[in-house]
């Protein structure tokens, strides 16, 4: 338990958890104030989830990877656990919105976006290092929430704007699943680069 606390603090987990919580809470609060619809707009939901994944992405590495690497821990298992916990946090936050007046729903869409964006962030951590791990997820999300993006019959468009497709859109689900598997695998086995960008 003590080890867990130190690990969490060394990676500034509390700060990230706070921002993730604030992000979801603010989205729900604004929606509850300005809209009568109980379902938060998918654009707002996705952006808020993306910020949650982004700030948790910052915890995927430490200031000095070289210092950590030789430590005699079983890192792949630890990294996989870290990702799973991040996933759990985001899913729990999304589910918790149902207790309030503005909900993140439908659940399959929320889950798809959480899983896909977190996977993309993990992939970013492997390629760019933890500091900029969120960049890909941010860019892709911002493309998805552009005014001319939206549900489309075109498969290429469905994949390019997977975050705002309706539930059950195969191309979008596949896109999120591929990102999740690729991100989780790469991060679990490789971790962050030794020299961060």
């Amino acid at each position: 338990m003590r080890w867990m606390t130190l690990y969490a603090r060394s990676r500034q987990v509390p700060r990230s958890l706070f921002v993730a919580l604030a992000s979801v809470a603010l989205a729900c609060l604004l929606w509850a104030v300005f809209s009568d619809d109980p379902t938060v707009s998918d654009r707002l939901m996705t952006t808020s989830v993306m910020l949650g994944a982004a700030v948790l992405g910052l915890t995927l590495g430490t200031v000095d990877e070289e210092l950590n690497r030789p430590a005699a821990h079983h890192w792949p298992r630890r990294r996989a656990l870290h990702l799973l916990l991040a996933l759990g946090v985001l899913v729990a936050l999304a589910l918790a919105t149902r207790l309030g007046p503005a909900h993140f729903e439908p659940f399959p869409v929320v889950l798809r976006n959480v899983v896909g964006l977190l996977g993309l962030t993990a992939l970013g951590a492997v390629v760019l290092g933890p500091d900029l791990s969120w960049l890909g997820a941010a860019v892709w999300t911002l493309i998805g929430v552009l005014p001319f993006s939206g549900p489309s019959p075109d498969v290429l468009t469905q994949a390019a704007t997977w975050t705002v497709q309706t539930s059950g859109t195969t191309a979008a689900t596949v896109c999120a699943a591929v990102l999740a598997v690729a991100g989780a695998t790469a991060y679990t086995f490789y971790g962050c680069p030794e020299r961060a960008a």
């Binding site: 809209s35 707002l44 952006t47 910020l51 910052l58 500091d131 941010a138």
Partner: peptide, 22 residues
């Protein structure tokens, strides 16, 4: 602080684009 950057990105998007769109 690194965490400031994604927060700024999302706040800017919300304030200048997503908010007005909604």
């Amino acid at each position: 602080r690194l965490i400031v950057i994604p927060v700024l990105v999302v706040l800017t998007a919300g304030l200048t684009g997503i908010g007005p769109m909604l």
